[in-house]
Amino acid sequence: MDIRPTTRADIPAVDALLARAYPVLLKPDYPASVLVTALPLISRAQPGLVTSGTYYGVFDGAILVGAGGWSMAAPGGASLRPGVAHVRHVVTDPARVRQGIGRAMMERVLFEARSAGAVQMACQATRTAVPFYAAMGFLALGEITVPLRGGIDFPAVQMKLDF
């Protein structure tokens, strides 16, 4: 597998990966009433993030099987906190979970964020991803509600990892 920063040319593949992964992976942990409103909003690639240089694709040959990244900017435009980086839009192909794809990508994300001066990584984890992040060393801080758009909120868990 190859892990590399994504580019504008990867946006369709990231879109397709998010669209096929999130409905399957999140279904056991969220009621249908949440998913019906949230999935159209969260299952889309964010072009600025995908082309940021800090968002990575995990490729098995030419096939995108995982993606995710980090930024110093917080999701939703929250205030910057010096030294705090943020996990962004992580996904693994549902047919390829538990094969080390997410771990390899997150190790790259953590390495790059530390190299850029981050001393802490913050994460707004889906309920589904909490065990994964805990296995990576993240500490759950508590339940949060992530505002997506005009009255549409998404339940998540705030997590952090100190370097």
Rank of each mutant, 00 (worst) to 15 (best):
A104S: 15
M105C: 12
M105F: 02
M106F: 08
M106G: 03
E107N: 15
R108P: 02
V109H: 00
V109Y: 00
V109R: 00
F111W: 05
F111D: 05
A113L: 08
A113M: 04
A113Y: 06
A113V: 06
R114K: 11
R114E: 05
S115C: 08
A116Y: 00
A116W: 02
A118P: 12
V119F: 08
V119K: 07
V119R: 13
Q120H: 01
Q120Y: 01
Q120P: 05
M121Y: 03
M121S: 04
C123P: 12
Q124A: 12
Q124P: 03
Q124D: 15
A125L: 10
A125G: 13
T126L: 14
T126E: 11
T126Q: 12
T126G: 13
R127A: 13
R127W: 13
T128W: 09
A129W: 09
A129E: 05
A129S: 14
V130L: 07
P131Q: 04
F132S: 10
F132M: 08
Y133S: 06
Y133R: 02
Y133W: 12
Y133M: 03
A134K: 06
M136I: 01
G137V: 06
G137N: 10
G137M: 06
G137W: 10
F138M: 08
F138H: 03
F138Q: 02
L139V: 15
L139G: 06
L139F: 02
A140L: 03
G142E: 11
G142W: 14
E143K: 12
I144Q: 14
T145V: 07
T145E: 15
V146N: 13
V146G: 12
